[in-house]
């Protein structure tokens, strides 16, 4: 019952006990704080970790640039200004721009719906968003070939309308969108769920429309997380190999993205040119990494307190 029991008022006094126990534990442990290892162990562990990182990540990255510039800066520029290389760079940028835009729109809509509303089929939608993470990109590419290819399910209507999807830009974009599908939504859903709906309710109670609530309250509250998702999505879109390889057809100067172009050059023993283009992707990775670090600190601001 709700009557205030006197013991409730006495209890705070009784809880004076535990601190003395904690003090005892500390003295029994010696002078060193309980959670610190000896200096030698700490240094050894750090060195092992650094050596591992250097061997498997730092060294390969360095080698990419070394190989790229092996035959001089002029050869590097020549490899990049080759018409096929330029076409691959252009195509990669175009595909990334389209698929990132599509996934930003989709990711915002899906995470908004999932985090702020209750509806039937919600858990199914969440599972579907995660699907691309569990499906091999090659399989994803094959799905589109089976759907839109010349022997595919939708081959007849596509031919009738003269629409080319496989071995053309639409197929590459579709495959990339599929593979990068979860990045934005996955970043936004947990944050939006944590933030709850109270601020949106406050906004509409103050007379804001649904539209202006979204743009004045919901979106600004997740802007750093959104940017973070865009960053990851973009990195993956530009670097995607498997799915794009299946649907692209490898037509030089037409349907080759940067990763595909790198592979072709490599297979033709043009290592210098291959690594020159690869250095651009490596550079993208570095820029992404730096931007990610900056964004992560901003992201902490959005976490609900």
């Amino acid at each position: 019952m709700s009557t205030i029991h006197p013991t409730a008022l006495v209890q705070p006094l009784a809880s004076d006990g535990p601190p003395t126990l904690a003090k005892q534990a500390r003295t029994q442990n010696g002078h060193r704080p309980a959670r610190t290892e000896p200096a030698a162990v700490r240094i050894a562990l750090t060195l092992i970790a650094l050596a591992f990182l250097g061997l498997f990540i730092g060294l390969p990255l360095l080698l990419v640039f070394v190989e790229a510039f092996k035959r001089g800066f002029a050869a590097y520029v020549a490899a990049l200004s080759d018409p096929d290389a330029l076409a691959a760079i252009r195509l990669t940028l175009l595909v990334a721009a389209i698929s990132v835009t599509a996934n930003v729109i989709f990711g915002l809509v899906a995470s908004w719906a999932i985090a702020k509303f209750e509806f039937a089929g919600k858990s199914l939608l969440i599972t579907l968003i995660d699907l691309p993470f569990s499906v091999s990109p090659v399989v994803a590419g094959l799905i589109y070939v089976l759907l839109f290819g010349s022997q595919g399910l939708l081959a007849a209507p596509l031919q009738a309308w003269d629409i080319k999807i496989i071995f053309a830009l639409p197929g590459i974009v579709l495959a990339t969108i599929f593979v990068t599908f979860p990045f934005v939504a996955r970043e936004l859903i947990p944050l939006m769920q944590d933030q709850g709906t109270a601020e949106e309710e406050a906004a509409i109670s103050l007379g804001a429309s649904g539209f202006s609530t979204f743009f004045r309250v919901t979106l600004p509250n997740v802007k750093w997380a959104l940017l973070y998702g865009v960053l990851l999505c973009n990195a993956r879109a530009m670097g995607e190999f498997g799915a794009v390889s299946v649907v692209s057809g490898h037509v030089r100067g037409l349907t080759n993205t940067m990763p595909l172009h790198i592979e072709i050059l490599y297979n033709e023993y043009q290592f210098g040119a291959s690594f020159a283009v690869a250095s651009l992707l490596a550079l993208l990775a570095l820029v992404t990494l730096i931007a990610k670090t900056i964004l992560e600190s901003r992201l902490a601001e959005e976490e609900p307190r």
């Binding site: 109270a198 601020e199 406050a202 906004a203 509250n221």
Partner: peptide
């Protein structure tokens, strides 16, 4: 609102 629901940004 119970937890104020101030617009944090």
């Amino acid at each position: 609102f119970q937890h104020y629901a101030l617009f944090r940004h």
